[in-house]
Design a protein around this nucleic acid. Structure first.
Lengths: 335, 335
DNA sequence: ATTTGTATAGAAAACGTTTTCCGATATTCA
DNA sequence: TGAATATCGGAAAACGTTTTCTATACAAAT
């Protein structure tokens, strides 16, 4: 059953060297011999053993993937569709490396070297727990998604964050809102910092009052959105609109508003971030900043592929544009 | 940087054999020597090369995964959380094998052998395109999720399908519904067949009229649910309740009903299947058959792990119970 | 006819481990 | 004290490839 290169060589009446040359489309094999070997390979359904090949070449045709937040990453499942597409194009399989403990002294670099991965994808927003310095210096081609680490062989890709929030603020401003609240995700996350910066800058540019009471720090979850909105509702002079750093936060806001008897969008305008499937089906349908998850995933793998094949290319820093999808959760300010 | 077993041996003043024994906790090493070697391993942050180990052992500490439907699998992202948990427990990494074309003559068995995976997970409902016969006979431990293939080294795991639908039918019957429609997923899928069987049996047991006009074959998508409901609405004597084979189908039904001016649950009762996050947030909140995705994923990996370590164990056929979650989309029949 | 050059093909080393086997040393027992 | 027996440690083969290097055969050029 399990054929190897020796069996093929014997069956074709040549040496294993010659078979190897045929497999890898190398010269120095006569057309006649090549054809014969190819026929045998086809007949026997022979596929060379990746493991052995990987051992001698130090390559594995595999991209390793770490998720800093586990699979609870809010839109992992969307990005991964893009990954899949680009993986097919570029010929890699994807190794999801779960055998590491965040925060332990276990070295993710060692794990990558041990697995011989050709490149690494690191995903998420929990930057503090892992020893990325070591990764950056390892020389293993690396792409970070939603973290802005760079190094001689490490780049990153993320959605447009600052301008996205600016656009959202401007949109609300056009609707005559002045009291615009902002519910962030984790403040120590890269995207959290960026989005907050976008909010700050836009408020400044439009000369809107910057009120610390209108700013809440959540954790991307629905619960944190709900809690934040409850706090806003206690204010005597509460916000008339809320920009949320995730659709899940927005969902919590919607729920808190409904409980308080506020109508969205008539009494309160709400903008989400992400554009997950659910945002179409909320009541009312959520106006949100749509991330282009497919492109995010595709570009991550394509960039990695380029970095692997062109060691001298500087690693990319890619910002993927977003799109403000206007649905039914925003209206002209009632005041 | 990239240490190997020779470096460790040299540093510890022993042979590579001894280092290997220490790494693998084998006997015939004195406590003193063992301690010294362990110290060096720790100091150098040495991790043995998986690839080399895999080559000699024919193992890889890796579970291969094929998705017959790609990542558009409706609840892949949920199951995968359970996978992750059990993978950590059992010590495997997960290799997502994308380098195969469904329907081509490319052999997934060869791919698995080539990658040296210790076990394989096959996911989804498109059974017709792949050559599973070969897989079943390969002797590679295999678990199918949502397909009922079995073999000497292949088992499967799926949610309770027949009884789940029976429970749903009985529930509607208790609410005095007689005209109960059923919107299936792909009929050629295992779960589709099973769920339809559940519907048929329950209708029979309760002596409810079995009307072919009340049965629609969709594809698990929202669009197919929408289309099916549109058809039901054309009937002079339409159903008063609908059981859907997925929450997405139910979402389409809800939309079609709303467009037709029907109130759910007052005019029409709707039951979904899956219990995806979104089902909590529909209008009205959807009564649905909740699958236990976490257990599905966990058990899949644990079973695989057992099969790998106990070659004589008969492969399991596991049915994971579901739970009818009653929310706001069903009411007593208005007639 | 001798040299030079050019395909073609194969032998052997290498990749980093595990595993089998054997030798050496220490321990036990008569 | 000598033999039998554990225990420990290492040499070498093996896993299935790629890669480098060498050998052969034959054609072309002198």
């Amino acid at each position: 059953m399990a054929k190897n290169i020796h069996d093929i060589a014997k069956a074709a009446g040549v040496s294993i060297t010659t078979v190897s040359k045929v497999i890898n489309n190398r010269p120095h094999v006569s057309p006649k011999t090549r054809a014969r070997v190819q026929q045998v390979i086809r007949d026997e359904q022979f596929i060379p053993n990746h493991t052995a090949r990987g051992l001698v070449q130090g390559k594995s045709k595999t991209i390793g993937m770490f998720l800093t937040t586990g699979l609870t990453h809010p839109f992992f499942s969307r990005v991964v569709v893009g990954l899949e597409k680009a993986l097919k194009e570029t010929g890699y399989d994807l190794l999801y490396l779960v055998q590491f403990d965040m925060g332990s002294d276990y070295s993710i670099v060692q794990h990558c070297l041990s697995r011989n991965v050709d490149g690494v994808l690191i995903f998420g927003f929990q930057s503090h727990d892992l020893n990325f310095e070591e990764m950056l210096q390892s020389g293993i081609p690396t792409i970070f998604i939603d973290m802005d680490f760079t190094g001689p062989r490490a780049g990153y890709i993320t959605s447009e964050n600052i301008d996205s929030i600016k656009t959202a603020v401007r949109y609300l401003h056009q609707l005559q809102h002045q009291r615009i609240a902002f519910i962030n995700g984790h403040l120590d996350s890269y995207v959290g910092k960026q989005r907050f910066e976008g909010y700050r800058l836009a408020m400044q540019e439009l000369e809107l009052p910057y009120d610390p009471g209108y700013i809440s720090i959540g954790d991307f979850s629905k619960e944190s959105g709900y809690a934040a909105m409850k706090e806003f509702l206690k204010l005597s002079n509460g916000p008339t609109s809320v920009i949320c750093c995730s659709d899940m936060i927005a969902l919590g806001v919607l729920e808190a508003a409904a409980e308080a008897g506020l109508s969205v969008p008539d009494d309160l305008s709400v903008i989400g971030f992400d554009g997950i499937e659910m945002s179409k089906h909320t009541q009312p349908a959520l106006t949100t900043i749509q991330q282009d998850f497919l492109t995010l995933g595709e570009q991550a793998i394509r960039s990695l592929n380029e970095m692997i094949h062109s060691p001298n290319l500087p690693p990319p820093s890619i910002i993927v544009p977003t799109n403000l999808v206007i649905r039914d959760s925003c209206a002209v300010c009632p005041l």
